[in-house]
Simulated assay, not measured.
Amino acid sequence: MINILVLCTGNSCRSQMAHGYLNHFLDKRKVMVYSAGIETHGINPGAAAIMKEDGISIDHHTSNHVDEYSDVDFDFIITVCNHANENCPFIPSKNAIRLHHNFYDPSKLVGTEVEKHAAFLKAREEIKAYFKKFVEEYLSGDKVA
């Protein structure tokens, strides 16, 4: 079993979208995906709505603190925002590959509903493309045994 942790500040938006796409792209019998934050803010309604538009439900996800997974030995730890990358507590996974990409944060936008929707769509498409490429590079074919 391959364990993947996606880490963000509040585990409400970007990490939740990444978690949703990883579950969508991967065989759940061979890979376990976790998402967490260095804080917990609950699932962002805008993130849940924009994922539903792409046919993926994250409504059942929970917002978890990274400390909840201290006993999991991760193979991949992926931070999806600079704040989490810079403030992440020590995660004692022996041989984890650590990756970082600072995704745009749509939850910070103040504007009209149309502008907010466009911001969530932009973030979703960036996250979708990144994690599709991640799966192809790190977890395709023989790599997931």
Rank of each mutant, 00 (worst) to 15 (best):
M1G: 11
N3T: 10
I4A: 08
L5F: 12
L7G: 07
L7Q: 06
L7R: 05
L7F: 09
C8S: 06
T9H: 04
N11H: 05
R14L: 00
R14F: 01
S15K: 03
M17H: 03
A18S: 09
H19R: 08
H19M: 05
Y21E: 14
N23G: 11
H24K: 09
H24M: 12
L26I: 12
K28D: 07
K28I: 11
K28V: 08
R29G: 07
R29P: 01
K30R: 06
S35W: 03
E39M: 09
T40Y: 06
G42T: 09
I43R: 03
P45K: 08
P45R: 08
A49S: 13
A49R: 11
I50N: 07
K52Q: 15
D54P: 05
D54T: 05
G55M: 13
S57P: 04
S57A: 08
I58E: 04
I58K: 02
I58R: 03
I58H: 05
H60T: 13
H60V: 11
H61P: 05
H61N: 15
H61Q: 13
S63H: 09
S63T: 08
N64S: 14
H65M: 11
H65W: 10
H65L: 15
H65F: 14
V66A: 10
V66N: 07
D67S: 15
E68Q: 14
E68W: 12
Y69A: 12
S70P: 07
D71Q: 12
D71S: 14
D71T: 12
D71I: 10
V72R: 05
D73L: 15
D73S: 13
D75A: 10
D75I: 10
D75H: 13
D75N: 12
D75M: 07
I77T: 09
I78L: 06
I78F: 05
I78T: 04
T79H: 03
T79F: 02
C81T: 01
C81E: 01
N82Q: 13
H83W: 06
N85F: 14
N85C: 11
N87C: 10
C88Y: 07
P89Q: 13
F90L: 15
F90S: 15
P92Q: 15
S93I: 12
S93F: 11
N95L: 08
A96R: 08
I97T: 12
I97R: 10
I97K: 11
R98M: 14
R98K: 14
L99N: 04
L99P: 01
H101K: 04
N102Q: 01
N102Y: 02
N102L: 03
F103V: 01
Y104S: 02
D105A: 06
P106F: 02
S107D: 06
S107M: 04
L109R: 04
V110R: 08
G111C: 01
T112E: 00
T112W: 00
E113H: 04
E115N: 00
E115K: 00
H117E: 01
A119Q: 00
A119K: 00
A119R: 01
L121K: 02
A123N: 00
R124P: 00
R124K: 06
E125K: 06
E125D: 14
E126F: 02
I127V: 04
F131Q: 04
K133I: 12
E137H: 08
Y138W: 09
L139K: 09
L139F: 09
S140E: 11
S140F: 13
